[in-house]
């Protein structure tokens, strides 16, 4: 808990990237496009916060991309059916929480390994969605986009929502008893149980919270354009997990902070636009992403806690 090595390493790489951009591509920092970029990543931050909680309890959820897609389509269809956004939002969040609860029940209730459970729910949800929609776009009625607020206000509000989720969860993790329970369960569930905690409830709650985050994020994404693509969100799980682990949350649970996750996400989210701004060919992108993940994790080399 004490060492900030990973956060510093990620911050250093991010800083370097920003300096390079400032020198060779100052246009990156123009306010309007930068605000757009951040608004596009705001939903990802919300999901990453939820994922961090799940990983802190020593679990993982790779079905989150499918949950995101399902909630996006559901939100789109409800909005298209004329539901006001004030009802669409809670419905999507509730759907996400239910999907998360299914994972959580299987993992916490039956003690099944989360990577396998969520692998199965990921496939099942995705195929179900393919069957149901066949890839067809959902067209949204006018007034859904930006919640009718206009673009800059809408973007500002998305950033505000993402920031609020982030700050709330970060503070809760640090200062609330429930937050400390998450760390306790992740470091040693048996010890936590002996100390009077209920590890299963904590795990279930973490999965439900992640699902709710996916639902919220889906709505935050849906309001940014007038059409919903059912494919949206596939592959999201890898992006989010990468951000969380690059940000220093130990995959073995119980260690890491949301601040690191924020930095990790920024770093990964900036790579693609940075390559565009630096005029580097797109086919290098995945290789660079992989190299950055490896570099960041190298900061942990030699630490005992993470050994396999």
């Amino acid at each position: 808990m004490k060492s900030y090595a990973r956060e510093l390493a990620v911050a250093a790489v991010l800083g370097l990237l920003l300096v390079v951009l400032a020198v060779w591509a100052p246009a990156f920092f123009e306010p309007a496009p930068l605000r757009s970029l951040l608004a596009r990543e705001a939903p990802t931050l919300v999901v990453a916060c939820g994922m961090a909680l799940v990983i802190l309890t020593r679990q993982i959820d790779i079905s989150v991309g499918s949950q995101f897609s399902a909630c996006s389509v559901a939100a789109g269809l409800l909005a298209a059916a004329g539901w006001p956004m004030g009802l669409v939002l809670p419905a999507a969040v509730a759907l996400g929480a239910v999907l998360g609860a299914v994972n959580g029940a299987l993992v916490a209730g039956l003690g099944l390994p989360s990577i396998v459970v969520t692998l199965a729910t990921m496939v099942t949800l995705r195929q179900g969605l393919n069957l149901a929609r066949q890839g067809e776009f959902v067209n949204l009625p006018d007034g859904v986009q930006w919640l009718g607020l206009g673009q800059s206000a809408g973007q500002g509000m998305l950033l505000l929502v993402a920031g609020a989720v982030f700050v709330t969860l970060a503070l809760a993790l640090r200062h609330l008893a429930a937050g400390r329970h998450v760390y306790a369960v992740g470091s040693d569930a048996e010890a936590a149980r002996l100390a009077g905690l209920r590890p299963r409830r904590v795990t279930l709650a973490a999965f439900m919270l992640l699902g709710a985050c996916a639902g919220l994020a889906a709505v935050m994404n849906v309001v940014q354009s007038p059409q919903v693509q059912p494919l949206a969100g596939s592959g999201l799980e890898l992006k989010v997990i990468a951000a969380v682990v690059v940000g220093g949350v130990a995959i073995s649970g119980g260690r890491g902070r949301l601040g690191g996750v924020f930095l990790g996400l920024l770093l990964l989210a900036f790579i693609s636009p940075a390559l565009t701004h630096l005029h580097i060919e797109a086919y290098w992108e995945k290789a660079i992403q992989g190299a950055i993940i490896l570099l960041a994790v190298l900061a942990d080399a030699g630490r005992k806690e993470d050994s396999p």
Partner: peptide, 24 residues
């Protein structure tokens, strides 16, 4: 280096596919 396999191979998952794209 005793790094966690999930993260390492998540990194090389991206790296290997990226190299395949870059090479071609």
């Amino acid at each position: 280096l005793r790094l966690p396999p999930l993260i390492v191979t998540l990194g090389t998952y991206s790296l290997f596919r990226g190299l395949a794209e870059a090479l071609t």
